[in-house]
């Protein structure tokens, strides 16, 4: 899709529009208008905008969170630190940045499975997971995970043992959660890098589980 038009947003601009020139959608025009005004007034620097975009497109992502989880699986001291003060433990690995100012790690156990949501908008732990997937930002997810977390897990093909209860954590502008999935069986003695490959984005949101060694081999991770 070349343009992202909202319903009825772009009606007028087509009228009398010559196709010899260039066309920008209504939304693109608004964004350009805003950016040019903010640059003129000294509020933003276009190169700083490029740097923000590059960071979120390439540097920040679930591989950061996977590193945190793998380290917690291997090192009891780090796991304790993560439980006590996730913000400091995560910062110590260099994952510092916006939306990671106050982190809480919630650990899955055989008794409790954790899931995260932001029912108000889309608060998400950017430094460890990057920007959220489309479904996380959707109203259907935000509504359904609160009402029917088992149903959401089923949508992701996940079934939990009967005795496991589910707890859903609602993120806020201040507090962001990171789910620490359970360490898969058969990974004794694995290195941090090997373990990190088992930790998927969804397993840190709680809509998935960490991959088993077999699943990782099948998916080529």
């Amino acid at each position: 899709m070349a343009h992202d038009h909202g319903p009825g947003q772009d009606g007028e601009s087509h009228a009398g529009h010559s196709h010899e020139g260039s066309h920008l959608s209504e939304t693109e025009l608004r964004v350009r208008a805003l950016e040019s005004i903010l640059i003129e007034k000294g509020y933003v620097d276009p190169q700083a905008l490029d740097r923000f975009i590059e960071t979120y497109e390439t540097k920040v992502g679930p591989h950061n969170g996977a590193h945190v989880v793998a380290k917690a699986w291997r090192e009891p001291d780090f796991r304790d630190w993560l439980r006590r003060d996730a913000t400091a433990a995560i910062h110590a690995l260099g994952y510092i940045g916006r939306q990671g100012e106050h982190m809480v790690a919630v650990e899955n156990t055989p008794e409790q499975h954790n899931m995260i949501v932001c029912t108000l908008c889309s608060c998400y732990p950017w430094p460890v997971l990057g920007l959220p997937p489309v479904w996380y930002k959707s109203a259907p997810y935000r509504a359904k995970v609160v009402r029917d977390p088992h149903g959401v897990l089923a949508d992701f093909g996940v079934t939990l043992p009967e005795k496991t209860r589910i707890r859903v954590w609602d993120s806020t502008a201040e507090v962001r959660y990171l789910v620490v999935p359970m360490r898969p069986a058969g990974t004794e003695g694995w290195s941090e890098q090997e373990l990190a490959r088992l930790v998927t984005r969804d397993s840190m949101i709680g809509t998935g589980l960490a991959l088993s060694p077999q699943q990782a081999a099948e998916t080529g991770r």
Binding site: V31, V44, L49, F52
Partner: peptide, 12 residues
């Protein structure tokens, strides 16, 4: 444009 809108918000 999504990236520009995102980045402008961070900058502000």
């Amino acid at each position: 444009w999504e990236a520009r809108a995102f980045a402008m918000t961070l900058a502000l």
